[in-house]
């Protein structure tokens, strides 16, 4: 946690348009938790994946302008990005400028043309979810829950870039968003596809490829009986939500799973209204799922199913051996 819970905030382009609900709910929840988000003055696009595909050095320089401005923003040495793609690009540029000295020098040569300079590695780049679970912590969040999301079965969808490459979280099967949802009172379904790709920019390039990737995730969430998918990235939300109809038409399926931002669900559990949290802009309406909050869920089917006497023990870390008498 930074001093006074203050962070430098980089919203990114998507949060100004397709992911507006994410920006709205982030700011509202931050206010509720007494976090201060100082938005970088005059920030620019992070380049997404596109710029890096065409010309790497200008792409790194594009990102580095944001880092240089972030360092000038003051208030805290930590930059927080709610968008996973922005988070990756900021973090990667920050790390590479530090690790690969020649690259760092070249980027600074470019920055100098705009009167800027940035020392790679001098800021810490973090994802919004990381700040929520690490700095604020589950206990403090739990203490704010006034309207538990009881009865809502959510599939926690992390996507790629919050866990890969090399963020310190489990790269295949993270559980911190699961734990956050449990803290809010929701029921978390097992979700093997939780870190698989949403299709990214493929929706613009090859519909065939993108729709198949989206289908896999929706099918998995449906197979495990999720009422809603909860995400932490505007691109993931856009692909799973806005293209759900196209996927249904393409594959003759009838998925109808709303896709929400974790900040929206936090706000709901804190007792904030749906209007304050940007609900209503989703393409697959969230209301039917939200109306389930408060219901009693039928007793959970145990996974793996309850074992009888013949069953072999599941792997347990040594030392936590349960005594079975």
């Amino acid at each position: 946690m930074t001093e006074n819970g203050t962070y430098v905030y980089y919203p990114g382009c998507s949060l100004q348009s397709t992911g507006r609900a994410y920006d709205t709910s982030t700011k509202r929840v931050a206010q509720h938790l007494n976090l201060t988000l100082n938005e970088i003055e005059d920030w620019n696009c992070c380049g997404a994946t596109e710029y890096f595909s065409v010309n790497a050095l200008p792409a790194y320089s594009l990102v580095a302008r944001n880092l240089a401005l972030a360092a000038e923003t003051g208030g805290a040495p930590e930059v927080v990005a709610p968008c996973s793609a922005c988070y990756l690009n900021l973090r990667k540029t920050n790390d590479y400028m530090h690790k690969f000295k020649k690259l760092g020098a070249q980027v600074n040569q470019a920055l100098a043309a705009g009167g800027l300079h940035y020392e790679g590695g001098s800021l810490r780049v973090r994802h919004l979810l990381d700040i929520i679970v690490q700095d604020v912590g589950y206990d403090a969040i739990g203490a704010q829950v006034t309207r538990p999301l009881q009865g809502l079965r959510v599939a926690p969808y992390y996507g790629c870039l919050i866990v890969r490459p090399d963020t310190g979280y489990n790269t295949e099967y993270p559980t911190h968003l699961d734990a956050l949802m449990t803290t809010l009172g929701a029921t978390v379904v097992d979700f093997p596809m939780k870190t698989h790709c949403c299709g990214g920019h493929m929706t613009q390039i090859s519909e065939e490829v993108a729709y198949e990737l989206i289908r896999r995730i929706l099918k998995n969430a449906a197979d495990y009986g999720a009422d809603a998918i909860v995400t932490l990235c505007p691109m993931c939300q856009l692909n799973l939500d806005a293209y759900q109809g196209q996927v249904n038409r393409t594959f003759n399926t009838d998925f109808n799973i709303p896709v929400m931002f974790f900040t929206q669900l936090m706000g709901l559990a804190f007792g904030l209204s749906t209007d304050e949290l940007g609900f209503g802009s989703e393409m697959v309406p969230a209301m039917p799922a939200l109306s389930r909050i408060g219901r009693e869920l039928p007793e959970e089917r145990e996974r793996p199913k309850r074992r009888d006497k013949q069953a072999l023990p599941m792997p347990t870390p040594r030392g936590s051996g349960r005594s079975e008498s």
């Binding site: 072999l312 023990p313 349960r322 005594s323 008498s325």
Partner: peptide, 15 residues
């Protein structure tokens, strides 16, 4: 009467 998972000899698969 005390039955525990045998992590050494049974490699966790038996008691």
């Amino acid at each position: 009467p005390a039955k525990v998972i045998d992590f050494v000899y049974e490699s966790g698969l038996g008691y």
